[in-house]
């Protein structure tokens, strides 16, 4: 691992759980500029290739009776499609490609990050923030384009007693603007935490006495992370659907 000399001086226990998030240049050891192909680039490329593999190569047979890969793709397609229909409504089906792209991107990023030696794009707060704020801005713009000023009715509870309405409106506005923050921090936080915990357990594995427990701990956390990876992709997508519903049908 990182520093053998330090390891010797610290008695075998080395914790660098955050080093796994450092982007490094793929070619040469230079600094990582915005255009530099890095390990992040590599794993995003692998992600795109995996998406192509499942959804394009998998469905190239176009079988009435699907092959295995095709039925995986069809399963995700049906899952997201039904989610949009159920949560957002039938008129939101035209936004299906965008939501499907988000879901597939987050899901594949989360699961590929669970491979050993991989790099985790969804643990980058900048990346999840782009996703979250992208969703937020797109939905807000869509709401104003569709409903104009009536979109602001989203914050004005007509059912509430008169004197409560301004207070509720303030709370609603705050909660509305917190949405992208919670979306992005939830995703990045969950994925980062899982990876860091695994690294910390791996650090304890250097102690002979603690290693069985540490390895068991890694296995357990890894199992948990497999759940978290799927659930976070699901949560991100379903919240996008819920927010989209507000934009399409702002009346409560």
């Amino acid at each position: 691992m990182a520093t053998e000399t330090e390891a010797a001086s610290e008695g075998g226990l080395v914790f660098h759980p955050l080093d796994q998030f450092i982007p490094t240049s793929l070619f040469g050891n230079g600094a990582v500029h915005w255009y530099t192909p890095s390990n992040l680039t590599l794993w995003l490329a692998i992600l795109v290739l995996a998406v192509v593999g499942v959804f394009v190569l998998g469905s190239r047979g176009r079988g009435i009776v699907p092959s295995r890969m095709q039925s995986v793709g069809e399963l995700m397609y049906g899952f997201v499609y039904k989610m949009i229909e159920d949560v957002t409504g039938k008129d939101a089906v035209k936004y299906f490609p965008y939501i499907m792209t988000l879901f597939v991107f987050v899901l594949f990023a989360n699961y590929l990050a669970l491979l050993p030696m991989s790099y985790s794009p969804t643990s980058m707060i900048a990346i999840t923030a782009v996703l979250g704020f992208g969703v937020f801005i797109a939905i807000t713009v869509l709401g104003f384009v569709k409903h104009g000023a009536a979109f602001l009715g989203l914050f004005w509870m007509k059912d509430a007693p008169g004197f409560l309405r301004p207070i509720i409106a303030i709370i609603e506005v705050i909660s509305y603007f917190v949405r992208p923050v919670s979306l992005s921090i939830r995703l990045a936080g969950n994925i980062t935490a899982g990876h860091v915990v695994i690294k910390v357990f791996a650090g304890f594995a250097a102690l002979t006495l603690a290693s069985p427990a540490a390895i068991l701990g890694i296995v357990a956390i890894y199992g948990l992370e497999i759940l978290v990876a799927g659930i976070q992709a699901y949560v991100f997508t379903i919240l996008t659907c819920v927010y989209l519903k507000d934009a399409l049908h702002p009346a409560h």
């Binding site: 530099t36 890095s38 995003l44 490329a45 795109v48 991107f105 794009p121 980058m124 900048a126 782009v130």
Partner: peptide, 10 residues
């Protein structure tokens, strides 16, 4: 900027 750039590409 690096992360955002490659995210947008991907």
């Amino acid at each position: 900027p690096h992360q955002i750039f490659w995210l947008l590409v991907a």
